[in-house]
Design a protein around this nucleic acid. Structure first.
Length: 104
DNA sequence: CAGTTGACTTGCA
DNA sequence: GTGCAAGCCAACT
């Protein structure tokens, strides 16, 4: 039976986010996909909301590069990591999307 | 225990 | 890229 533990998913998300190098970002959908739940992108966000400070939650953005609805510090932290932001407030995913899990 | 909400994604226009 | 609608699942009310 395919029992899915939220705890395992959360741990996988945290472990993955912790591995993100500076200057790179990842989308919730990508994280959810790598954790084996492409449809649970919301759970990734929910996990991040409960994530401890030892997790680089600020390196996680949504699929257009938009930051968290109510987290002004995130942009500052990303800018400090040489992450470029566009005038519309979106991160340049084309340059900063992390591919460490699958280098081609 | 049913309904609403949310740090989201995808598809269509 | 932007806007609207539908889908998805856990947590909250």
């Amino acid at each position: 039976m395919s029992e899915f533990n939220k705890e395992a998913f959360y741990k996988a998300v945290y472990d993955l986010v912790k591995q993100i190098p500076s200057g790179f970002v990842l989308t919730y959908g990508t994280i959810a996909l790598l954790c084996g739940r492409p449809q649970n992108s919301r759970l990734v966000g929910k996990a991040m909301s409960q994530a401890p400070q030892e997790v680089f939650a600020y390196r996680v953005v949504n699929h257009i590069g938009r930051t968290v609805p109510d987290w002004a510090e995130q942009r500052v932290l990303l800018e400090a990591e040489e992450v470029t932001f566009k005038e519309n407030g979106c991160v340049d995913l084309k340059k900063h999307i992390w591919r460490g899990y699958s280098t081609k």
